[in-house]
Simulated assay, not measured.
Amino acid sequence: MFFNLNHAQNFTPGYIMVLHTFGRDLKWNPHIHCLLSEGGYSNDGFWRHVKHFNYNYLRNAFRTALLNELEDRIGPSFKKVKAKCYTQHKQGFYVYAKPNLCDPKVVAKYIGRYLGRPVIATSRIDRYDGDIVTFHYNRHEDEQYVEETLPVMDFIKRLIRHIPEKHFKMIRYGGLYARHRKIDSKLHRVISKEKHRIYRSFTQWRTSLFLSFGYDPLYCSECNHKMEFLELYYNHKRVPLEEMYEKVMSKSRGKRSSA
């Protein structure tokens, strides 16, 4: 979708994907939550704002990408199931997306808590007597209040099925947010080396934030005071952050002047 904005410039957004395997009733319900930037950077560092998304395209693109990935992993035996999925889901796979009209800081705080939450909050567990567990939830379809009572072992079974395997990644970063490891190569369109150097270099993180969002992370947004003391360990050496920043900036200025 972003790539179609300009094929030559290859506009790339940033996105974070979080896998949840549970529904409100604790049953198996795998789905993905995705945070997507409202715009993307081109290869030459130009930002293009995108406020409205084509959700029909998103549903169809999600269906195609997921089915192709499953076929690559499962093999030719998946082709019949794949064809059936296209027949039964002509409008694409389900994508729930609506614009957020709240303050961005409020939205970010809410989503941060929501994505990182456990399978069930203790506030939803109403009673436990050693044998029986009673919990409640609002049904997703109609927000109807539902109270459910289970034997304790059945309740535990519903919980432990959502424990991921060791080292299994539940969170993925793509596009501008990606770490660009080989394992993530299929998750995002590869951006240019120049763009990677500008926006993803660890040693230029302060410059990247300033170029991307227009503020200096070392200055307080409330009182405008600069951080007086902050140090990092870089190449096993204790280096003041300010010194590291000045070295990076001087090196960057030298490259631009030589060019």
Rank of each mutant, 00 (worst) to 15 (best):
F202I: 14
N43E: 11
V81W: 09
T12C: 07
H180C: 08
K169E: 09
I191A: 01
P30E: 05
V239Y: 15
L19R: 01
D184G: 01
I125P: 00
V152E: 06
K237Q: 06
Y199L: 06
I171L: 10
Y41A: 00
K195M: 04
R181E: 07
H225L: 04
N4I: 09
Y114G: 02
D126I: 14
H162W: 02
H49N: 06
V239A: 06
S185D: 05
Y55K: 04
L66A: 10
R124H: 10
R63E: 07
R124S: 13
C220K: 04
K27C: 03
L35V: 15
T134L: 04
Q9R: 15
A178E: 00
L241D: 02
E143C: 14
Y15R: 07
L67C: 11
G40L: 00
K193G: 13
N60D: 02
E69W: 12
Y55C: 06
R172K: 06
K255F: 13
T64E: 07
I111M: 03
N4T: 11
D103N: 15
S37R: 09
L67W: 01
S201I: 10
S201L: 11
K82Y: 09
N29A: 13
W28E: 06
M227Q: 04
R117S: 09
L26K: 00
V146G: 05
R59C: 03
K109R: 11
P104L: 06
E231K: 08
F168I: 05
H33Y: 05
I183F: 07
K251H: 02
L218H: 08
A97P: 08
K90D: 14
P217G: 03
E243T: 03
S252G: 08
E141P: 05
E38T: 10
N56M: 09
I198L: 06
H7A: 04
R172V: 15
S257T: 14
F213W: 07
S258L: 15
C223A: 02
F62P: 03
L241P: 01
E165Y: 12
K51F: 13
K186M: 08
